[in-house]
């Protein structure tokens, strides 16, 4: 069920922790600023970008709230993400014009060593607040689990699992990445 296998949580040095936090904060800023191509460049060629929908099931139900073969708002590879970005950039993306204002707030960043050298398992929380035209304001809150890979002097995102708190998305759409 997990996009990232459960590994022992081996911490990293403070400098690596700092660099990865900076990486995630910068990623959030790129989304706030609609710098779609710059954001896309942070995704590895073999990215799996996944945001399942949450089902309300009894605790005793072994199937759990989400799974890879069930509902999702994102279940994307690089091509899928590229297609979404390409829509955002169309002049005829009417629901983006005038632009939506986004605030991606990232906190609670935990970094652990990944299975392979140069890979890191990164947990974080997110708050996404969107304001559109006059009074359309949407709030989405949740948690992310990433697999990052060191590339040159920066990183790329190899896996991202996004778990939101809502089971019914309380908004007409989801017009950003998280």
């Amino acid at each position: 069920m997990s996009a990232v296998a459960r590994l022992p949580e081996i911490p990293v040095d403070a400098e690596t922790q700092r660099r990865i936090e900076q990486f995630l904060y910068r990623e959030a800023r790129l989304l706030d600023d609609e710098r779609w191509d710059d954001w896309l460049a942070l995704m590895a060629e073999d990215i799996h970008y996944w945001m399942p929908t949450m089902e309300n099931r009894r605790r005793a139900d072994k199937l759990g709230a989400y799974a890879l073969d069930r509902g999702a708002l994102y279940n994307d590879n690089r091509l899928d993400l590229t297609r979404r970005v390409s829509r955002f950039k169309q002049p005829s993306a009417w629901a983006e014009d005038p632009p939506t204002r986004h605030a991606h707030v990232i906190s609670g960043v935990e970094v652990y060593q990944g299975e392979r050298t140069g890979e890191y398992v990164v947990h974080s929380s997110f708050v996404n607040y969107r304001s559109r035209v006059e009074r359309d304001n949407d709030l989405l809150v949740g948690r992310r689990e990433d697999l990052l890979r060191a590339v040159g002097d920066s990183f790329q995102i190899v896996r991202r699992k996004i778990l939101m708190t809502q089971s019914v998305l309380m908004a007409k759409n989801l017009n950003t990445f998280l």
């Binding site: 929908t53 073969d69 509902g71 019914v168 998305l169 309380m170 908004a171 007409k172």
Partner: peptide
């Protein structure tokens, strides 16, 4: 039907 149900709210 496959893949579960996706739910959302539209103010319309």
């Amino acid at each position: 039907f496959i893949g579960g149900c996706v739910k959302s709210v539209i103010q319309c």
